[in-house]
Design a protein around this nucleic acid. Sequence first.
DNA 1: GTCTATATCCGGATAGAC
DNA 2: GTCTATCCGGATATAGAC
Lengths: 211, 211
Amino acid sequence: MNASSTPSTPGARASDTRARLIGTAQALLQTHGFAAFSYQHLADELGIRKASIHYHFASKDDLGVAVLAAFRASFDEWVRLHLGQDPHARMLAYLRIYTRFARDHGKACPVAMVSSDFFDLPETVREQARLLAQAHLLWLAATLEEGRQAGVFAFPGEARRQAEVIGCAAQGAVLSARMWGDQRMDDILRQLLAQLAPPPPARPVNIQIMD
Amino acid sequence: MNASSTPSTPGARASDTRARLIGTAQALLQTHGFAAFSYQHLADELGIRKASIHYHFASKDDLGVAVLAAFRASFDEWVRLHLGQDPHARMLAYLRIYTRFARDHGKACPVAMVSSDFFDLPETVREQARLLAQAHLLWLAATLEEGRQAGVFAFPGEARRQAEVIGCAAQGAVLSARMWGDQRMDDILRQLLAQLAPPPPARPVNIQIMD
DNA sequence: GTCTATATCCGGATAGAC
DNA sequence: GTCTATCCGGATATAGAC
């Protein structure tokens, strides 16, 4: 009955199962939320018994902390991989993360899912959620500011505020994709980018400034 | 032990309890989500036994349908009350709905909460959620388009697309207010409005067109 | 590391008295 | 309309064998 491609074996290393638990829990968190997935779901997915999970994560809260920390580590790695690109390309790549989420069985942003469960979460998990959200917002603000100075983005006020708008809209977009399909979300992200585009040069007066 | 201000009495009318159930369920949906609140929570709040709730709503799904229908009725009424106002004032009033949500114990948008639970909901509840979201989007699109033609809003492309951005951002904003407090959300809504503001007249050339 | 077995609690739902 | 009593399933978690 073990549906897993890598059934548990007596010689399995703890770190293997632990990593697979985190990966599966990440997917379940994005599709069903933290409260709505269970050790039973995880056990079924991995082909082990649910009691075995407690060896790796004594409580579900511990698992929640590890799952959110893993999301943060993934994002840090993603940031590292895109360090060289220009702001516009980076922002495109960032929004494509959410496009991929939505297309992958309607996964939502982990931060949005945790926010929904927020009042039923222990402080340890809440803290990790804040750290993850913070990492995204800081990156967004830096990218927006860099893009504005490079002339590829235009928006009013502080980059930090604009970063919050983009982040919230992206979260809302993947949520709405669950209702309406991922085409809806593509439209929203495109509109978000269109709003960031700088206006065309003041007027088509034929002045050319030579340098 | 009845904490309710209107304890159940033998002579209570069904419509009273039914209305109180819907109202309490609306609040619980916005704070904890549909899956996370229980008949027991409702019963405690109203000062009755949980079995009694089944008289009014045979199943929790039936309650969910009624709760979302009630949200839609409230919104329709809100729309009616604001018919006379100009687009800018209407949009301000609309965003203030979410500000009030966030300040009221961190309530989220019901659509966002239902979206999180979406894959675990029966089709009857999903349908109501779509109807509610649709009502908001249609109103937003109409208000945006009217405001653009009146010159108080500026945005690229179709109003319908911009409506989706505003709606998603508002949903994300109230969710993020649960993490960071409602001041954060005020900032986001302000930024949203600032982005909608039309640019200042082409340049301060001292041309006055007389009419 | 993973198992079986079990403890404990809470969820929605039903039957039938009042 | 609301009650008590009960059923059943599923949740997290623990104990102890292998």
